[in-house]
């Protein structure tokens, strides 16, 4: 059994994208260590509702580290101090009695704040719509073994596909660059035979959409890779650079 802890929460409150934000401070008492971070926020919100105050707005959905909805910049780290895990997989046993825990939204021009800790990540959907798919003709499916894919390639594509599109890479990057996300989404298709025919067009279209939406230029600091809850590697960024340069040289 984990022991209970008491701590101070500093939470960013902001009424809308254009409003001036500020920090609110809350005292949390006797929170069990096996409470997840989001459950702890639920407890806070129940208290706030009972007191007749407005609850803190934050994104969440599956709460098992797959959907990519939870965000939160906790004590200077996207998804908190744990590595290779999302905020919903973070437990209060990571913190100590008497800690001050600062919770901020993703801060990036590409992800404007909707309210409090919730940001608008629809820019990622727009990048996906620009080329994060394969065009296939419908009809009878062929046998799965007709197209052979070497195991290392399949593994690499699968690792790239583990990206949940949460936006931690942009939140961690001092340049607000979305390259880790875009490179993962390009790589998961460009590595495989089904994605190859449209590989160069995809790289160009998704990069141009990314630039258009106001994300920054990658300077290879590797903060994204360090904070990614799915441990997506920047070798994907090198592949995207390669494909993009190839495409431009062919034009």
């Amino acid at each position: 059994m984990d022991k209970n802890i008491s701590f101070t929460l500093k939470i960013w409150r902001q009424n809308g994208p254009k409003e001036q934000g500020h920090f609110d401070t809350f005292q949390m008492k006797d929170i069990p260590g096996d409470t997840s971070f989001l459950e702890m926020l639920d407890i806070l919100n129940e208290q706030l509702i009972e007191e007749g105050k407005e609850p803190v707005v934050f994104d969440h959905d599956c709460r098992e580290g797959i959907c990519g909805m939870c965000s939160l910049y906790i004590n200077g780290h996207p998804h908190g101090p744990a590595t290779g895990a999302t905020t919903c997989q973070l437990y209060m046993r990571r913190f100590n009695d008497g800690d001050v825990i600062t919770v901020e939204p993703w801060r990036s021009a590409g992800f404007p704040v909707i309210k409090d800790l919730m940001v608008d990540r629809s820019a990622y959907d727009k990048i996906m719509q620009a080329g994060g798919y394969i065009s296939i003709r419908t009809g009878a499916p062929q046998d799965a073994n007709a197209i052979l894919i070497p195991k290392p390639i399949a593994d690499e594509a699968m690792d790239a596909a583990s990206c949940i599109g949460c936006g931690a890479c942009v939140a961690a990057c001092k340049n607000g660059s979305a390259m880790l996300f875009v490179s993962a989404k390009v790589s998961q298709l460009n590595l495989l035979p089904q994605g190859k025919p449209e590989a160069l067009r995809r790289a160009k279209a998704m990069i141009s959409k990314m630039d258009e939406l106001g994300f920054g230029n990658c300077t290879n600091t590797r903060a994204c890779e360090a904070e990614c809850p799915k441990n997506v590697s920047i070798s994907n960024i090198a592949r995207l650079n390669r494909d993009f340069i190839k495409a431009k040289l062919k034009d």
């Binding site: 200077g76 600062t102 801060r107 990036s108 021009a109 992800f111 340049n175």
Partner: peptide, 15 residues
Amino acid sequence: MNRAARGSERYAVSV
């Protein structure tokens, strides 16, 4: 460009 992409607010705590 990169500073602009970062947005107008800065993180209070950054590690």
